[in-house]
């Protein structure tokens, strides 16, 4: 485990209140990182902040809507004031699904998906970048939906495709600062926002529904525990300087 030693590092995880974001925060904290968390509502991130502190690390939790520039900037300033810098930025906040064909979409719903998934990622990077030192890592949680067209959810697909391209462009702009930026593609994960589970009241209820079987729309997929994403983010965050940049690391079980 010596290679996954993040002692003294500062990590920021957006959408860190539950599901994948919570698992990521706890994996990074267990490896030794102090963790700043944000999400739109306060209660859940406070609880995750307490879990981080219980591991002996420092934590900062703030209610921030990453779709809005000013709160993001205030959050970044607060993190730097508290911890001095940002070594690992994980842009995990996402969602805002408007699951409708474009012909039935509302401009507001369509725009919201782009604002959370694409602008949220951009806002966080823009606000944090000056305070990310050499050896820093930026990890964007994207989606296979941003790589492969499917009907019925064009706002999310377009936003994730944009985030994927943002990763690739940024890698070319900041390599000479020693900062690596990569995507992570989760595939299907048991979280409480999935629309394909009957009972999505908890991670456990979703996992139970799909134990030993796949959702009908994706027979080759396996519904994963969010901790598998925490483990992958920790692995990418622990890469030595000069490691991969501008790449995508996927846990999906379908070619994209």
């Amino acid at each position: 485990m010596s290679e996954q030693d993040l002692a003294g590092k500062v990590a920021v995880v957006t959408g860190g209140g539950r599901g994948i974001g919570r698992s990521i925060a706890l994996y990074l904290a267990r490896a030794g990182a102090d963790v700043a968390l944000c999400s739109r509502s306060n209660g859940e991130i406070e609880a995750v902040g307490e879990e981080v502190r219980a591991l002996g690390r420092r934590a900062l939790a703030m209610a921030v809507d990453v779709a809005e520039w000013e709160p993001v900037e205030s959050f970044a300033r607060a993190v730097v004031a508290e911890f001095g810098r940002i070594d690992i930025l994980v842009n995990n906040a996402g969602g805002g699904f408007e699951v409708t064909p474009l012909a039935e979409s509302t401009p507001q719903g369509w725009r919201e998906a782009v604002e959370i998934n694409l602008f949220g990622t951009y806002h966080m990077i823009r606000a944090c970048l000056d305070d990310i030192p050499a050896g820093g890592k930026i990890i964007n949680i994207t989606s296979g939906m941003g790589l492969e067209p499917r009907p019925g959810n064009s706002s999310y697909s377009a936003a994730k495709a944009g985030a994927h391209m943002l990763t690739r462009c940024l890698s070319l702009e900041i390599w000479d600062r020693g900062i690596d930026v990569n995507d992570i593609i989760p595939g299907l994960v048991a979280t409480t926002n999935v629309d394909w589970a009957k009972d999505r009241s908890s991670v456990e209820s979703v996992l139970a529904e799909f134990e030993g079987k796949s959702p009908p729309f994706a027979p080759s997929e396996r519904v994963k525990h969010p901790d598998e994403l925490g483990e992958l983010v920790l692995w990418v965050a622990s890469m030595p300087a000069g490691g991969p940049t501008g790449q995508s690391f996927s846990l999906a079980r379908r070619p994209f």
């Binding site: 890698s171 595939g187 000069g242 991969p244 501008g246 995508s248 846990l251 994209f256």
Partner: peptide, 23 residues
């Protein structure tokens, strides 16, 4: 080695890269 150690039901049909240029 890391790829060989993925649990059953791990990624498949994917590409794991150490490159430093977008591909």
């Amino acid at each position: 080695l890391w790829m060989a150690l993925r649990p059953e039901g791990g990624p498949t049909g994917q590409t794991f890269s150490l490159a430093r240029r977008p591909l």
